[in-house]
Simulated scan of single mutants.
Amino acid sequence: MYLEIITPDESVFEGEVDSAIFPGSDGSFQILNDHAPLVSSVGKGDVKIVRQQENKPEEIHFSIDGGVVEVLNNKILVLAESIGE
């Protein structure tokens, strides 16, 4: 599935991923391939992305300060307020 993370200032990440875990308002939640359509707010916290890189799983982490996530037709769009340090 395709993931795009953007802030008002820049595009932070674009690419194919196997899974993504987001900090939800009531706890973290995971998105996998063929997930049902979803729109949800995300809280401040860690976004964990897992993707295959040269046939090995690679984890990427981003700290976000909140925002919104939309899942539709194996595309995840994250509108983040900002990326933390």
Rank of each mutant, 00 (worst) to 15 (best):
G66T: 09
V50K: 15
L72R: 13
S63P: 08
E59F: 12
Q53T: 10
F62C: 11
V47E: 10
I64N: 04
D65Y: 04
I60W: 04
G45T: 02
P57F: 05
S63V: 15
E58F: 01
K48L: 03
P57N: 07
G66H: 10
D65T: 05
V69F: 07
I60E: 04
G43E: 05
Q53H: 07
I60C: 05
V50I: 15
G66V: 08
K48F: 12
I64D: 10
I64L: 05
D65Q: 05
K56E: 09
G43I: 01
G66D: 07
K48T: 11
D46V: 13
P57W: 01
G43N: 07
E58Y: 00
Q53Y: 06
G43W: 04
K48W: 05
I64A: 00
Q52K: 04
G66E: 11
V50L: 15
V50N: 15
V47F: 12
K56Q: 12
E58D: 05
V50G: 15
N55C: 03
G67W: 01
S63M: 14
L72F: 12
S63W: 10
D46T: 09
Q52D: 05
G67F: 00
G67A: 00
G43P: 10
G45P: 03
P57Q: 06
G66W: 12
H61W: 13
E70G: 08
G45K: 02
K56G: 08
R51P: 03
V50Y: 13
G45W: 03
I49A: 10
K56Y: 09
L72N: 12
H61R: 11
K56A: 08
G67S: 00
F62V: 07
Q53P: 00
